[in-house]
Amino acid sequence: MKISIQINASPYQYQAADTAWHFIQAAIAKGHEVYRVFFYHDGVYNAHRDSRPPGDERDIVKRWSSLQLEHDVGLVVCVSSAQRRGLLEQSVALKVGGYEQALANGFRIAGLGLLMEAVIESDRHITFGA
């Protein structure tokens, strides 16, 4: 089955990002295809490169980067949600004088069109976080 995922909540405050990550691991292990993970609303904080949790805690951001690296799952951050929250794409940051390295490895910034494409292409679209 082709599955797309949407994450609406920030990491560390809500369990949505953890649950989604475990769900994706299980889905891949069962042979399903995870087409895309789309980060919306406060979910964009999952892409924050400078997140540094204490050493004895799971590193949510790194976990996403590894998922992309190991399974080639597209990690897409909503551009308008991200810009509102100060997470800028490098080219935009250069233009407006913002921080250029905001996004962690494996994430890319795009519009809602990529969310809709994922919804249309997938057999199931599952949202985590209110």
Binding site: Y40, H41, S81, L112, M116, I120
Partner: peptide
């Protein structure tokens, strides 16, 4: 305040002819 971004999603879906 998520409501605004939520409606954006509905409009985008319509723009994709759904």
């Amino acid at each position: 305040v998520c409501g605004q971004e939520f409606l954006d999603m509905a409009l985008m879906a319509a723009a994709f002819d759904q």
